[in-house]
Design a protein around this nucleic acid. Sequence first.
DNA 1: ACCGTTTCCGAAACCGTTTCCGAAAACCGA
DNA 2: TCGGTTTTCGGAAACGGTTTCGGAAACGGT
Lengths: 342, 342
Amino acid sequence: MKHVTIKDVARCLNVSVSTVSRAFNDKYDIRKDTKEMILKTAHEMGYYPNPIAKKLSQNRSLNIGVVVPEIMNGYYSEVAIVLQEFFISKGYQVLLMQSDENEDQELKNVKTLINNMVDGLIIAPTIGYKNASYYIEKHNEGYPIVFLNRIDETLQASKVIFNNVKWSFFATEHLIREKYKKIYHLSGYKNLCVSSERIQGFKKAMNKHNFPKENYKIIETGLLAKEGMDAIEDLIFQQDLPDAFFCVNDMVAIGAMKKLKDNGYKIPEDVAFVGFTETRIAKLVTPELSSVKQPTYDMAKKSGEMLLSRIKNPNSEIETVIFNGEFNIRKSSVRDSSIPAT
Amino acid sequence: MKHVTIKDVARCLNVSVSTVSRAFNDKYDIRKDTKEMILKTAHEMGYYPNPIAKKLSQNRSLNIGVVVPEIMNGYYSEVAIVLQEFFISKGYQVLLMQSDENEDQELKNVKTLINNMVDGLIIAPTIGYKNASYYIEKHNEGYPIVFLNRIDETLQASKVIFNNVKWSFFATEHLIREKYKKIYHLSGYKNLCVSSERIQGFKKAMNKHNFPKENYKIIETGLLAKEGMDAIEDLIFQQDLPDAFFCVNDMVAIGAMKKLKDNGYKIPEDVAFVGFTETRIAKLVTPELSSVKQPTYDMAKKSGEMLLSRIKNPNSEIETVIFNGEFNIRKSSVRDSSIPAT
DNA sequence: ACCGTTTCCGAAACCGTTTCCGAAAACCGA
DNA sequence: TCGGTTTTCGGAAACGGTTTCGGAAACGGT
């Protein structure tokens, strides 16, 4: 149980601790054969450098903080996995915290991580704008932060984002091309930037195709399946169902579809659906859900790389990278059912 | 950016560093008013103890390693969230790693965490038995480890597990009571203990009710939806469909249901389904899926508590806690459809 | 007033590294 | 052989805390 320290190794070999340290740190001022000799016996003695002492003397924690809004719905789980793997390969450890879509929790998480002296932060913010100024202040102080996804494009900070406007425009236009005449958008919270961007894309498509105002509508729901269900319940009660829905994400779409199916509606014959931020369940529900797929892996990895470069050079130029995705058309949104099963 | 250290505080107040340290550590030998005075000015100066230095001098990392098989399917995400929250509240940080259901990756993860000097480990092992001996060796050396879920009941180690045999017995018996006459079990890997325990429960029910051998079957699949789909494809091809399935988990069940629906079968009229380890999607698929729900929150929290007590007292008696769950019957497994929607 | 406790605090050692500085050793050309 | 470089290494000071030890001050009882 007792740990072998650098001193033990030094004493055993009759060299100084600094020499042993040099052997382990690829330093130039050590003779090649003494280095090898030291490494060899150190290994035999079961020595490896104490990471905590290393952190102290180098004044860095080799920890990265990752703050995501949630990790239950697949998307941010994947983000977490990618970042975890990436940073481990670079010698860092990841401290992952989730905010449960709560601004205050998020701020607490960030402060906890800063107090724990993480060398950098990747933040995928939740709903609301309260914390932005604090983050920007830290960012400007030179604290390495990279934002991911849920962040306003105009914000002056390093960030990796998705072109929500464009792809929600495409998704909506697809419904129009399929000749749906009355299209509602189940949007997320308006004070969540990805939601408002997706609303913009939706409106843009409506305008381009001169949809009359009475034939489209934006209904603010939330991000959960339950909220999609609630919205449908209302619409059924008000006898105000459109023939197609474009939803802020897959979970809302799936909840909405479920509620409609439970009430005897057929999808897509009676009502068509398109989701967003494709999750793995999109292909498991009946009918399979059309959705916009984001390049999760690439986006997460890019944010990791950007963070490392910010850590190396905290006052480097800020950089914004905008990703594009792909739109996967499936049975939930096409009139003829000739789409082959996957 | 420059950090305020304990020395700065001491110098500023004309006291010694040890006094400042005492003020921050609830030690007895300090006068109440000097303590308050120190805390007050320290706070004003923006001082807080450097956690890394603290860790070094106290010889502990205040880090907990959590190793789970995956975090994409909801169950272990929840485990991660619960543990994260629990340990943060106790002053620890959690290092979460996922093994992607790969034994070798798991061992690598554990070793990485041990090298990083975590104060303790919670492991939810993946498939296979290769690593068990290494873990047990560490466990016996006094390294604080608690196993969660995926671990053999007979293993001499601290663990929190679910009574799989019992609840898979109940789930199976429910299908029998509903008068299904030909019941197949889509099992997970046989060398995954939870799978084999669920197989046991299934067999037990079959035996109790004297099912003839030709009316039940155990088909080894995996843990993913895709594998449920593949199994169904085979069965359809072989024209060997039963009238009910009991599945090792919800994802396999959902995959299987999807494939059947795509081929025109009605659920539960043609084929009934029961899942296990209930996930949030169980209530979102059509029809809603009957499943055995595990007390995820309680189990995760219990494992955290057990780990803390092992950290305090590494050679305490090993303890095994077995949890029970509940069986939620939904439309996927009942003959008359009078089950109310939830 | 005296002595024995108790309370409170400072000095210094320690945790296990890295790194700076300087000195010994080796090398090299003349 | 000698002086000047260049390698190679050891000593010691950091890094920022905690903890042990011992002594001074305060206290209390006789």
